[in-house]
Design a protein around this nucleic acid. Structure first.
Lengths: 236, 236
DNA sequence: AGATGGGCTTAACCATGATCAATGTAAGTA
DNA sequence: TACTTACATTGATCATGGTTAAGCCCATCT
């Protein structure tokens, strides 16, 4: 019973819980489910390489996946870190081009893979689904554009601050503490986060140290206490 | 007759020539045309500011537009340079959020503005249109991801080389010259191109100088002769 | 022709963040 | 518990590309 291989998953139920498919009729959900395969990954396992041909797109049920480039010199740049309820690979599926990035599990992960034919079929029939897809890709594009902005116009410290504040969004302020005091947890290792922010781990470490010594934050492993979000945001 | 204000434009005809709408039925084209307004811009004129609310998206008929960020310090980062047959603003229209960038004409320009209601209506009715939109946004996203790759993993020289080779794509080799010899023309001023590549004009100038002195290219104003594309590509 | 101005180039200097190297720390394994 | 390994930190040094400033070239205007 405790063997993870024996855990049965309810594919239509999981699909229905994803924002992308939440408005779908039960029969559509069933058809989608027929084109869906589960995929389990162990931490560190590769999902696809740059150059592989996509056959659909992925949904994260639980766990965590990174999308990244590697350069000829062996450097890696993490483009995106994806967690539960997020999807990826739609764009590359529409273009019918090989993956430009690699995908790898950052933790043990359960994915759903939805075959492209089913997606295209659904677009034909349900314009609301098409609109949701368009909205989802718009968000992704928007995020990407904002990333480009930070790489181009902001210092490394500003990028780290921006990232922390983004993590803090939606997280309630610490009870009993000062206004604007929040605790956030880094979703993964500092090296991966550094790469996501286009920094070296060394630089990230130094920035955390500096922000700590200014009394703006407190770092305990993956847990970061933001003492005053407004003051942190104002720091340049 | 020679006054540009008097030039009548054939909106359905122009729309039909855009890849995005090329497969549309004449009656759909007519309905779209009813929601389309032309917009003429002089060189340097602002189309929208960061923060403005989008009411549709734009198609470039002729001329050139840049999308850019500005930082508090007055620095500018050009995200995209758009020419004829290209569209922009779709994503931000779907999200119904203010523009994250500013749009400005780099030359005298004719745009078509397509109202969002008509776009949404067409999505409801023609799934092929939805697919084209999705494909277009996928291309944009893909381009953006590749941009992030070059900012993160490539040196300024490599970015310039990549840009030149991209310009050279589809351009025939110079007749009578060596294999791989191509001439390309920079689509706009070097300052704007520098910003697009996340460089200062000074750095771009130095890189052009260096590549010239290595015999890889020859720069005459906006005209750049690539002597040997393969050798240029191999240069690191 | 001369003047104005924008775009471009050049050179000297500087700062940010990367690289290299060593050490420290925490988590998992025998 | 000691051992291993991956992750994280710290310090010293270095290089890339930005900054500042000056001058140049060319187009345009009067």
């Amino acid at each position: 019973m405790s063997n993870e291989k024996t855990i049965e998953i309810d594919i239509p139920g999981l699909l229905g819980r994803m924002p992308l498919f939440s408005a779908l009729a039960p029969e559509d959900l069933a058809r989608l489910a027929a084109a869906t395969r589960e995929r389990r990954l162990h931490k560190g396992e590769r999902l696809f390489q740059r150059g592989d041909a996509p056959k659909g797109f992925f949904l994260v049920v639980w766990g965590q996946v990174k999308l990244a480039f590697t350069s000829a010199q062996g450097n890696e740049k993490v483009v995106e870190i994806l967690g539960p309820l997020q999807s990826f690979g739609e764009a590359v599926m529409f273009l019918d081009q090989p993956y430009p990035v690699l995908g790898e599990a950052l933790a043990d992960t359960l994915l759903l893979h939805i075959g492209s034919a089913a997606v295209f079929g659904l677009i034909e029939e349900d314009p609301r689904f098409a609109r949701k897809l368009l909205a989802g890709m718009s968000i992704r594009l928007h995020t990407m554009v904002r990333d480009v902005e930070s790489y181009a116009l902001r210092s490394s410290t500003q990028r780290v601050i921006g990232y922390l504040l983004q993590l803090a969004e939606g997280v309630p302020c610490a009870p009993g503490a000062g206004l604007g005091a929040v605790s956030v947890e880094l979703p993964t290792s500092k090296q991966v986060i550094a790469s996501r922010l286009s920094l070296t781990p060394e630089t990230l470490s130094r920035i955390f140290h500096e922000l700590s010594s200014m009394g703006l934050i407190e770092v305990q492993g993956k847990l970061i206490r933001i003492h005053d979000a407004a003051r942190l945001a104002a720091h340049e």
